[in-house]
Amino acid sequence: MEFLAQIINGLSLGSIYALIALGYTMVYGICKMLNFAHGDIIMVGAYMLSVAMATLHFPPFLAILTSMVVCAALGVIIERVAYKPLRNASPLAVLITAIGVSYFLQSSALLIFGSTQRKVDAAINFPSIQLGELSISGNALITLIVTIILMVGLNWFINNTMTGKAMLAVSEDKGAAQLMGVNVNFTIAITFLIGSALAAVAGVLFISSYKYVGPYTGAMPGIKAFVAAVLGGIGSVPGAMLGGILLGLIESLAKAYISTQLADAIVFGVLIVVLLVKPTGLMGKKITEKV
């Protein structure tokens, strides 16, 4: 029974990682860049939630929506201002810019909200469910459900709408996509918009369990989610989902049964082993040189 509870904890933590990992993997797929500022979007999302609820007295649902809209807009603005001018620059320049944007977001939060962590009233608060002697956290359950709905929705969007197919086409061949009439800049903006909105949801879910937000709140889940994206195969949407869930499960089980201190080491250990055996990640595509 204890084991089952740990599994549910792991699934719920994993779904938060998966939601963040989706943003990394979609942006990588389409722009071939690692957006290291992505983790900090979670932090912005959490702050927005807190401001909307505590200062503006929005009801939880509206507060979550505000947080999503702000993050989506922020993602699009970051792309326009910081990354778009570097579309044809060397990958290293883009990577360094992303790290710069990450510091910029953290420092802005530090300036606006100060260094003390801010308590956030939970936007979602569901009672635990009692199943015999097993008590399942309502929040964990709702996190899992929300994530499943978002993932199914995202998958449907990518595979069944023309905008989704345009995203796939752009990630494969920007020039050919342009010849089809796809506006590449618009498609990239949409990708950042979706990724950042998902990160905001992840931020809301994350902060509902952890209660406090500070300028560096996004850093650790951001890195874990990045690991999840690489584990699943960066560039692959199903891979990010699988990688996130697996990472959450491993972390939870390692914390429960091996050692709390070693949990992170185990998580990264698994990543190293997977990359040694399958360098492209679990569901990564084989990279073939074009002839």
């Binding site: 197919k165 345009a166 796939l168 494969e172 050919a176 009439g181």
Partner: peptide, 24 residues
């Protein structure tokens, strides 16, 4: 424009490729 080297979308299906052709 049918580009050099064809540049079809390798990971999409044949039908999806054709749909992309009618994107606009």
């Amino acid at each position: 424009h049918v580009p050099e080297g064809r540049r079809i979308f390798q990971e999409l299906t044949v039908l999806e490729n054709l749909q992309m052709g009618a994107f606009t």
